[in-house]
């Protein structure tokens, strides 16, 4: 099992007047090499669940295990180490640093692994070539198009070769052609053995053949169904 979520609750601002129960009794198992899509309206808890799987923060209660490591009560330092070794993030807003070049953005995760510049560069260029944006490597990211931004974001997520890819509303800002291109990349990564968890309510994603399972979410709870 690559991801195991058992009876997980997540409450923001616990004990305060603005307390919000984002997740309630979530149970979810994801097999190695499985692609699942978390579907649901805004505020249903998709991004919170993705954050727990992505080791951004631990759950308030319940058991979460990712790539063999129990996350509950794991200090921030160890969550970070686990995140950088096992997780690649693709964000809805891409979250690239706008003043850096494409190459510098892609190399960012490798810096804290202690790779020397030439190896970082070599790995990043190889990925950018594969994703078809190598010709833009010296461009500042604010100078490239939305589709290219997404491919740069994918390259950055994959630079550490993580076994798990998490994508939060990855096609929200893409047109149909670019969305299909993105999904074809996901299909490639699945064939390479990656485990992928995406959040989306885009039918193109939900109904794509590479998606093994769709998990519907509503008010912080899950309801699984086969794709």
């Amino acid at each position: 099992m690559m991801i195991s979520i058992q009876n997980v609750y997540k409450t923001y601002n616990q004990g305060l007047t603005n307390e919000v129960a984002a997740l309630r009794d979530i149970n979810l198992d994801v097999q190695r090499n499985e692609v699942i899509c978390l579907k649901g309206p805004s505020g249903s808890g998709k991004s919170t669940l993705l954050s727990i799987i992505g080791c951004v923060f631990p759950p308030t209660s319940g058991a979460a295990q990712v790539a063999g490591k129990k996350l509950s009560r794991l200090p921030d330092r160890f969550l970070t180490i686990h995140r950088r070794e096992y997780i690649g993030f693709i964000f809805q807003q891409f979250n690239l640093l706008p003043q850096l070049t494409v190459l510098d953005n892609v190399m960012l995760p490798l810096m804290v692994f202690g790779y020397p510049p030439e190896i970082r560069c070599e790995k990043a260029v190889a990925l950018l070539e594969r994703l078809g944006v190598e010709h833009r490597r010296h461009f500042v990211v604010s100078q490239i198009s939305g589709g290219e931004l997404q491919r740069v974001a994918i390259a950055r997520a994959l630079i550490n070769d993580p076994p798990i890819i998490l994508a939060d509303e990855p096609t929200a800002h893409l047109d149909q052609k670019l969305s299909e291109r993105f999904l074809s990349f996901m299909e490639e990564f699945k064939q390479e053995g990656k485990t992928i968890v995406m959040t989306s309510h885009d039918p193109l994603v939900v109904e794509h053949p590479c998606v093994d399972r769709v998990v519907e979410m509503m008010d912080g709870r899950t309801r699984s169904s086969c794709s």
Binding site: R77, T80, R84, F89, L97, L108, M111, R156
Partner: peptide, 10 residues
């Protein structure tokens, strides 16, 4: 926030 999400420690 981005650096931390990418695995940078505090």
């Amino acid at each position: 926030g981005i650096l931390k999400l990418l695995g940078w420690q505090t």
